[in-house]
Design a binder for these strands. Structure first.
Lengths: 245, 245
DNA sequence: CGCCCATTTGACAGCTTTCAAATCGCGTGG
DNA sequence: CCACGCGATTTGAAAGCTGTCAAATGGGCG
């Protein structure tokens, strides 16, 4: 009957690679926070805002993006339940991008000062958060390569593979079939393409039997072939690899 | 006459935003390390390698890159004296990209275990390294937007602006004129273009009076106009902004 | 049932790439 | 001091992937 503690997903995330002591765990759960529920499209943070909070995504999906000079949008990453979306706000003063809800989301806002104090008082927790940031960086690097050097078909297939594994890892489904809560326009903004071309690409992948689509759900017909088509090597997600001395 | 300590640049980097205590400083300088000098083109780390060391770049330039399925290369970031290039190696097990020397470089290799121990024993240093990682991430995000949503001219101009500010910040020159130690092919791999098109773009920027070139040195004729052409907002570099509670 | 947004589709334009070949820059050897 | 060699830079012409513009179709919701 006891509700699980609202920050449990954060603990799960941090303990995926690091073992925390009891005092560390208590300190994490003891973080002050404000719970919010936001509808799809609502902003969680806006580029240029003074960073006040870090944000734990407790349920739902969100995305980070930037608007460039000509007004077009580039999505930088997609986040799902358990992700700590704005850890950089703990140390950087100004948000350099926006974060928006993709679906209805439940979030916990944690004041930056508390995150800093936690890291200072509990180095093991600090290192776990640092590790999370490092993995974030690894995914960003893969996205640079994806939009910079792959053709449309490969980019889209790569993105579909990434979602499959991350959703599976987050316990939200299996890699063979999952919900893709994004419009084709949003997929286009992830891949640096146009929605028109994403549509053609998706249909091409479907025609070739690599995926099947139904509403917003994606079924991967042939994981091996989709991975090949997407030049996908999951190593950059660091799903398995633990940190150790 | 006393040689400056080889790890001094690391201290400079870490103390740019954070104030460290005397014990912290000593701990950083006390890090075990191996000094190396590598010629241009040599690998500092190869994708897939088991990560053993983090690497402080003491002088020279280096770049990180990935090779995608069709064999083409995407450069992920450029590094210059003072940068700590492979901090992610401290916590992640496997290198997900390669790092190569762009010029002759002097590096210091620091065992991952020592970095971890340092972060555990000196939380302030750990947080400074974390902050460095966060800024890295911010630059990666800007690069995603750059290759994903800007046209060739804008991408190249943006890159030139970034180099100008970063070299100035690193104390290697002034923003109005600096050495660009890269071939046009490498510039192409930074921007997701071909070297042919980079060449045309550079000439176009030059023809319009935004830059002048001489060998590998770049003079920025009109900083304002180049910044506009490159849709450049330096905020993402977090050059000024300090962390505070 | 009707509105609105997302998905599709077609024709055409255009930015970049590709493919080659010429020129340039510079260190090396005669 | 000049010729040679090789990688980098330039240039031109043509092809192609992706974007643009419009319009039709489809699906969910009040």
């Amino acid at each position: 009957m006891a509700e699980p503690h609202p920050l449990t997903p954060m603990l799960r995330k941090l303990e995926k690679w690091t073992r925390l002591g009891e005092a560390d765990r208590e300190a994490v759960l003891g973080l002050p926070h404000v719970l919010r529920t936001l509808d799809a499209h609502k902003y969680i943070i806006r580029e240029g805002d003074r960073a006040e909070n870090s944000c734990l995504l407790r349920s739902g999906f969100a995305y980070r993006h930037k608007i460039v000079g000509d007004g077009s949008r580039q999505i930088l990453s997609i986040h799902m339940a358990g992700d700590i979306v704005d850890l950089q706000n703990s140390l950087l003063m100004t948000a350099d991008h926006s974060v928006q809800a993709l679906s209805t989301v439940e979030i916990a806002l944690i004041p930056r000062g508390s995150i800093q104090a936690l890291a200072a008082a509990h180095p093991a927790v600090g290192m776990a958060m640092w590790l999370d940031t490092l993995i974030d960086g690894s995914i960003f690097r893969e996205w640079i390569a994806n939009v910079g050097r792959r053709d449309a078909r490969t980019r889209v297939a790569h993105l579909l593979c990434e979602f499959a594994l991350r959703q599976e890892d987050a316990g939200l489904g299996e890699r063979g079939r999952y919900e893709l809560p994004m419009t084709q326009e949003q997929l286009a903004d992830c891949t640096g393409l146009t929605s028109v071309h994403v549509n053609r690409t998706l249909k091409s992948l479907e025609r070739d039997g690599l995926i099947r689509r139904n509403k917003r759900s994606v079924t991967i017909g042939d994981w091996q072939r989709l991975g090949d088509a997407g030049d996908f090597n999951p190593q950059y997600l660091h799903l398995e690899i633990a940190a150790e001395a």
